[in-house]
Protein backbone atom coordinates (compact mmCIF):
# COMPACT_ATOMS: atom_id res chain seq x y z
CA UNK A 1 0.00 0.00 0.00
CA UNK A 2 1.27 3.41 -0.81
CA UNK A 3 2.29 5.23 2.28
CA UNK A 4 0.78 8.38 3.53
CA UNK A 5 4.19 9.91 3.83
CA UNK A 6 4.69 9.52 0.14
CA UNK A 7 1.38 11.15 -0.64
CA UNK A 8 2.06 13.90 1.82
CA UNK A 9 5.18 14.95 0.03
CA UNK A 10 5.03 17.85 -2.30
CA UNK A 11 4.91 16.66 -5.88
CA UNK A 12 5.97 18.33 -9.02
CA UNK A 13 2.77 20.34 -9.33
CA UNK A 14 3.06 21.73 -5.80
CA UNK A 15 -0.16 20.01 -4.59
CA UNK A 16 -0.40 18.43 -1.18
CA UNK A 17 -2.75 15.57 -0.40
CA UNK A 18 -5.40 18.04 0.61
CA UNK A 19 -5.39 20.08 -2.52
CA UNK A 20 -5.40 16.94 -4.59
CA UNK A 21 -8.35 15.68 -2.62
CA UNK A 22 -10.15 18.94 -3.14
CA UNK A 23 -9.66 18.72 -6.88
CA UNK A 24 -10.84 15.17 -6.98
CA UNK A 25 -13.84 15.97 -4.89
CA UNK A 26 -14.85 18.86 -7.06
CA UNK A 27 -14.99 16.57 -10.00
CA UNK A 28 -17.16 14.04 -8.27
CA UNK A 29 -20.65 15.12 -9.19
CA UNK A 30 -22.42 12.88 -6.77
CA UNK A 31 -20.13 14.12 -4.03
CA UNK A 32 -20.78 17.77 -4.76
CA UNK A 33 -24.49 17.23 -4.97
CA UNK A 34 -24.60 15.39 -1.66
CA UNK A 35 -22.52 18.13 -0.06
CA UNK A 36 -25.12 20.57 -1.30
CA UNK A 37 -27.93 18.61 0.27
CA UNK A 38 -26.11 18.30 3.56
CA UNK A 39 -25.44 22.01 3.55
CA UNK A 40 -29.10 22.69 2.94
CA UNK A 41 -30.01 20.60 5.97
CA UNK A 42 -27.33 22.36 7.99
CA UNK A 43 -28.82 25.67 7.02
CA UNK A 44 -32.24 24.52 8.18
CA UNK A 45 -30.78 23.38 11.48
CA UNK A 46 -28.98 26.68 11.89
CA UNK A 47 -32.19 28.50 11.22
CA UNK A 48 -33.93 26.59 13.96
CA UNK A 49 -31.14 27.40 16.39
CA UNK A 50 -31.26 31.08 15.49
CA UNK A 51 -34.98 31.09 15.83
CA UNK A 52 -35.81 31.85 12.22
CA UNK A 53 -38.37 29.07 11.98
CA UNK A 54 -40.00 26.15 13.81
CA UNK A 55 -40.24 28.08 17.04
CA UNK A 56 -43.78 26.95 17.71
CA UNK A 57 -43.15 23.29 17.23
CA UNK A 58 -44.68 22.56 20.62
CA UNK A 59 -47.78 24.69 20.21
CA UNK A 60 -51.04 22.80 20.29
CA UNK A 61 -53.02 24.73 17.75
CA UNK A 62 -54.70 22.46 15.29
CA UNK A 63 -57.21 19.64 15.16
CA UNK A 64 -56.26 16.02 15.64
CA UNK A 65 -54.71 14.48 12.53
CA UNK A 66 -55.40 17.29 10.13
CA UNK A 67 -54.42 16.46 6.54
CA UNK A 68 -51.84 18.43 4.59
CA UNK A 69 -53.01 21.95 3.95
CA UNK A 70 -51.73 25.42 3.30
CA UNK A 71 -51.65 26.15 7.00
CA UNK A 72 -50.15 22.87 8.09
CA UNK A 73 -47.79 21.78 5.35
CA UNK A 74 -47.63 18.23 6.66
CA UNK A 75 -50.77 18.17 8.72
CA UNK A 76 -51.01 17.81 12.45
CA UNK A 77 -50.35 15.02 14.88
CA UNK A 78 -52.67 13.46 17.42
CA UNK A 79 -52.78 16.44 19.76
CA UNK A 80 -52.81 19.01 17.01
CA UNK A 81 -49.20 20.06 16.66
CA UNK A 82 -47.76 21.09 13.31
CA UNK A 83 -45.82 18.14 11.92
CA UNK A 84 -43.73 20.22 9.56
CA UNK A 85 -42.49 22.45 12.36
CA UNK A 86 -41.64 19.41 14.44
CA UNK A 87 -39.79 17.85 11.53
CA UNK A 88 -37.78 21.02 11.06
CA UNK A 89 -36.91 21.05 14.73
CA UNK A 90 -35.87 17.45 14.33
CA UNK A 91 -33.24 18.60 11.84
CA UNK A 92 -31.64 20.69 14.53
CA UNK A 93 -31.66 17.78 16.95
CA UNK A 94 -30.18 15.49 14.31
CA UNK A 95 -27.31 17.86 13.69
CA UNK A 96 -26.79 18.41 17.36
CA UNK A 97 -26.63 14.72 18.10
CA UNK A 98 -24.61 13.95 14.99
CA UNK A 99 -22.05 16.70 15.46
CA UNK A 100 -21.51 16.17 19.16
CA UNK A 101 -21.19 12.43 18.83
CA UNK A 102 -19.03 12.61 15.71
CA UNK A 103 -16.70 15.13 17.30
CA UNK A 104 -16.53 13.38 20.63
CA UNK A 105 -16.10 9.89 19.26
CA UNK A 106 -13.52 10.95 16.71
CA UNK A 107 -11.48 12.94 19.21
CA UNK A 108 -11.58 10.23 21.80
CA UNK A 109 -10.83 7.56 19.22
CA UNK A 110 -7.97 9.55 17.74
CA UNK A 111 -6.27 10.22 21.04
CA UNK A 112 -6.65 6.76 22.47
CA UNK A 113 -5.87 5.08 19.16
CA UNK A 114 -2.73 7.14 18.67
CA UNK A 115 -1.49 6.53 22.17
CA UNK A 116 -2.18 2.81 21.89
CA UNK A 117 -0.53 2.60 18.49
CA UNK A 118 2.52 4.57 19.49
CA UNK A 119 3.07 2.46 22.56
CA UNK A 120 2.00 -0.73 20.84
CA UNK A 121 2.97 -3.90 22.56
CA UNK A 122 3.33 -2.22 25.91
CA UNK A 123 0.99 -2.19 28.85
CA UNK A 124 -0.69 1.02 27.72
CA UNK A 125 -1.60 -0.58 24.44
CA UNK A 126 -2.92 -3.68 26.18
CA UNK A 127 -5.02 -1.50 28.47
CA UNK A 128 -6.60 0.37 25.60
CA UNK A 129 -7.32 -2.84 23.70
CA UNK A 130 -8.81 -4.30 26.82
CA UNK A 131 -11.07 -1.28 27.31
CA UNK A 132 -12.18 -1.51 23.69
CA UNK A 133 -13.02 -5.17 24.10
CA UNK A 134 -14.93 -4.55 27.29
CA UNK A 135 -17.02 -1.74 25.89
CA UNK A 136 -17.73 -3.76 22.78
CA UNK A 137 -19.09 -6.64 24.80
CA UNK A 138 -21.39 -4.74 27.10
CA UNK A 139 -24.84 -4.68 25.53
CA UNK A 140 -25.41 -1.26 24.01
CA UNK A 141 -28.83 -0.80 25.53
CA UNK A 142 -27.55 -1.67 28.98
CA UNK A 143 -24.89 0.96 28.59
CA UNK A 144 -27.31 3.60 27.43
CA UNK A 145 -29.81 2.82 30.17
CA UNK A 146 -27.12 2.82 32.83
CA UNK A 147 -25.61 6.08 31.62
CA UNK A 148 -29.04 7.66 31.43
CA UNK A 149 -29.70 6.65 34.99
CA UNK A 150 -26.35 7.74 36.33
CA UNK A 151 -26.69 11.14 34.73
CA UNK A 152 -30.06 11.48 36.40
CA UNK A 153 -31.91 11.50 33.15
CA UNK A 154 -29.89 14.34 31.74
CA UNK A 155 -30.51 14.99 28.04
CA UNK A 156 -26.83 14.34 27.34
CA UNK A 157 -26.94 10.76 28.51
CA UNK A 158 -27.64 9.48 25.03
CA UNK A 159 -24.76 11.45 23.53
CA UNK A 160 -22.36 10.20 26.16
CA UNK A 161 -23.45 6.63 25.61
CA UNK A 162 -23.02 6.90 21.86
CA UNK A 163 -19.60 8.50 22.14
CA UNK A 164 -18.60 5.78 24.58
CA UNK A 165 -19.27 3.13 21.94
CA UNK A 166 -18.50 4.82 18.64
CA UNK A 167 -14.95 5.81 19.49
CA UNK A 168 -13.81 2.23 19.32
CA UNK A 169 -13.81 1.77 15.54
CA UNK A 170 -11.96 5.04 15.04
CA UNK A 171 -9.43 4.06 17.67
CA UNK A 172 -8.79 0.71 16.06
CA UNK A 173 -8.20 2.25 12.66
CA UNK A 174 -6.00 5.02 14.03
CA UNK A 175 -4.03 2.55 16.06
CA UNK A 176 -3.37 0.43 12.97
CA UNK A 177 -2.29 3.47 11.00
CA UNK A 178 -0.08 4.82 13.77
CA UNK A 179 1.68 1.49 14.09
CA UNK A 180 2.51 1.71 10.43
CA UNK A 181 3.55 5.33 10.65
CA UNK A 182 5.80 5.12 13.61
CA UNK A 183 8.19 2.90 11.73
CA UNK A 184 8.76 5.58 9.12
CA UNK A 185 11.81 7.70 8.79
CA UNK A 186 10.35 11.02 9.72
CA UNK A 187 9.38 9.68 13.12
CA UNK A 188 12.81 8.23 13.62
CA UNK A 189 14.25 11.57 12.71
CA UNK A 190 12.03 13.40 15.15
CA UNK A 191 13.02 11.05 17.91
CA UNK A 192 16.65 11.44 17.01
CA UNK A 193 16.55 15.16 17.47
CA UNK A 194 14.90 14.71 20.83
CA UNK A 195 11.29 15.73 20.23
CA UNK A 196 9.18 14.64 23.21
CA UNK A 197 6.87 11.68 22.81
CA UNK A 198 3.54 13.52 23.18
CA UNK A 199 4.70 16.07 20.66
CA UNK A 200 5.63 13.35 18.22
CA UNK A 201 2.26 11.73 18.58
CA UNK A 202 0.12 14.80 18.33
CA UNK A 203 2.04 17.07 16.04
CA UNK A 204 3.64 14.69 13.65
CA UNK A 205 1.83 11.38 13.52
CA UNK A 206 -1.77 12.21 14.24
CA UNK A 207 -2.14 14.82 11.50
CA UNK A 208 -1.26 12.08 9.05
CA UNK A 209 -4.29 10.14 10.11
CA UNK A 210 -6.64 13.01 9.40
CA UNK A 211 -8.04 11.33 6.32
CA UNK A 212 -9.12 8.38 8.42
CA UNK A 213 -10.53 10.67 11.08
CA UNK A 214 -12.56 12.68 8.61
CA UNK A 215 -14.17 9.66 7.07
CA UNK A 216 -14.82 8.07 10.45
CA UNK A 217 -16.37 11.28 11.68
CA UNK A 218 -18.88 11.23 8.87
CA UNK A 219 -19.65 7.58 9.56
CA UNK A 220 -20.19 8.34 13.24
CA UNK A 221 -22.49 11.22 12.34
CA UNK A 222 -24.72 8.93 10.35
CA UNK A 223 -24.60 6.15 12.92
CA UNK A 224 -25.55 8.62 15.65
CA UNK A 225 -28.63 9.79 13.78
CA UNK A 226 -29.74 6.26 13.07
CA UNK A 227 -29.13 5.08 16.63
CA UNK A 228 -31.11 8.01 17.93
CA UNK A 229 -34.18 6.72 16.12
CA UNK A 230 -34.05 3.39 17.84
CA UNK A 231 -33.08 4.81 21.21
CA UNK A 232 -35.89 7.34 21.13
CA UNK A 233 -38.27 4.59 20.21
CA UNK A 234 -37.20 2.67 23.29
CA UNK A 235 -37.53 5.78 25.42
CA UNK A 236 -33.83 6.09 26.07
CA UNK A 237 -33.10 8.81 23.55
CA UNK A 238 -33.91 12.46 23.19
CA UNK A 239 -35.42 13.97 26.31
CA UNK A 240 -36.07 17.60 25.50
CA UNK A 241 -37.15 19.06 22.23
CA UNK A 242 -38.22 16.96 19.31
CA UNK A 243 -36.40 14.55 17.07
CA UNK A 244 -37.12 12.38 14.07
CA UNK A 245 -36.76 9.30 16.23
CA UNK A 246 -39.46 10.57 18.55
CA UNK A 247 -41.72 11.36 15.63
CA UNK A 248 -41.26 7.91 14.19
CA UNK A 249 -41.95 6.26 17.51
CA UNK A 250 -45.06 8.42 17.93
CA UNK A 251 -46.21 7.35 14.53
CA UNK A 252 -45.89 3.63 15.04
CA UNK A 253 -49.46 3.34 16.20
CA UNK A 254 -50.76 6.01 13.85
CA UNK A 255 -49.75 4.27 10.66
CA UNK A 256 -52.19 1.46 11.10
CA UNK A 257 -55.00 3.93 11.47
CA UNK A 258 -54.11 5.14 8.04
CA UNK A 259 -52.43 8.33 9.17
CA UNK A 260 -48.99 8.36 7.65
CA UNK A 261 -47.94 11.99 7.71
CA UNK A 262 -45.91 11.82 10.89
CA UNK A 263 -44.15 8.69 9.73
CA UNK A 264 -43.48 9.93 6.23
CA UNK A 265 -42.27 13.36 7.25
CA UNK A 266 -39.71 12.08 9.71
CA UNK A 267 -38.65 9.13 7.56
CA UNK A 268 -38.13 11.15 4.42
CA UNK A 269 -36.23 13.90 6.12
CA UNK A 270 -34.04 11.45 7.95
CA UNK A 271 -33.48 9.34 4.87
CA UNK A 272 -32.54 12.41 2.87
CA UNK A 273 -29.92 13.57 5.32
CA UNK A 274 -28.48 10.13 5.98
CA UNK A 275 -28.33 9.19 2.32
CA UNK A 276 -26.72 12.48 1.35
CA UNK A 277 -24.23 12.19 4.16
CA UNK A 278 -23.41 8.61 3.23
CA UNK A 279 -22.73 9.64 -0.38
CA UNK A 280 -20.72 12.59 0.86
CA UNK A 281 -18.71 10.26 3.07
CA UNK A 282 -18.08 7.96 0.13
CA UNK A 283 -16.95 10.81 -2.09
CA UNK A 284 -14.72 12.09 0.68
CA UNK A 285 -13.18 8.69 1.10
CA UNK A 286 -12.57 8.39 -2.63
CA UNK A 287 -11.08 11.86 -2.76
CA UNK A 288 -8.74 11.23 0.11
CA UNK A 289 -7.59 7.86 -1.14
CA UNK A 290 -4.07 8.46 -2.42
CA UNK A 291 -4.38 5.58 -4.82
CA UNK A 292 -7.19 6.88 -6.99
CA UNK A 293 -5.60 8.78 -9.74
CA UNK A 294 -6.85 12.16 -10.82
CA UNK A 295 -5.93 14.25 -13.73
CA UNK A 296 -4.27 17.49 -12.72
Amino acid sequence: MNTVAEAASIDAHGDSLWLKALHKFRRDRVGMWSLGVVSAYALVALGVVLGWWANDWAAVTGPKWAPMSAQYWFGTNIIGQDIFARALYGTRTAFEVGLIVALGATLLGAVLGAVAGFFSGTFIDEMVIWIMGVLDSVPFILLVAAIAYSLQGSPWAMHVAMIATFWITTARLVRGEVIKLKGLEFVEAARAIGVSKPLIIFRHILPNTLHILLVQATISFVAAIKSEVILSFLGLGVKEGMSWGLMISESTFEVLAGFFNNFIAASILMFGLVMAFNLFSDALQDALDPRTVSRP
Binding site: A58, A59, V60, N77, I78, I79, Q81, F233, L234, G235, L236, L246, S249, E250, S251, T252, F253
Partner: peptide, 25 residues
Protein backbone atom coordinates in the same frame (compact mmCIF):
# COMPACT_ATOMS: atom_id res chain seq x y z
CA UNK B 1 -43.66 10.01 32.99
CA UNK B 2 -42.33 6.71 31.82
CA UNK B 3 -41.01 6.30 28.29
CA UNK B 4 -43.39 5.84 25.47
CA UNK B 5 -44.42 7.74 22.37
CA UNK B 6 -47.64 8.95 23.92
CA UNK B 7 -46.33 10.02 27.29
CA UNK B 8 -44.30 12.83 25.78
CA UNK B 9 -47.31 14.06 23.90
CA UNK B 10 -49.36 13.86 27.09
CA UNK B 11 -46.83 16.16 28.64
CA UNK B 12 -46.80 18.56 25.72
CA UNK B 13 -50.57 18.79 25.82
CA UNK B 14 -50.53 19.43 29.56
CA UNK B 15 -47.84 22.07 29.18
CA UNK B 16 -49.81 23.81 26.46
CA UNK B 17 -52.79 24.13 28.82
CA UNK B 18 -50.67 25.51 31.61
CA UNK B 19 -49.05 28.00 29.27
CA UNK B 20 -52.53 29.11 28.34
CA UNK B 21 -53.36 30.07 31.91
CA UNK B 22 -50.15 31.95 32.44
CA UNK B 23 -47.45 29.42 33.19
CA UNK B 24 -44.14 30.23 31.48
CA UNK B 25 -42.91 27.41 29.25
Amino acid sequence: TTPGPTSRLFFEQFRAWLMDIGYPK
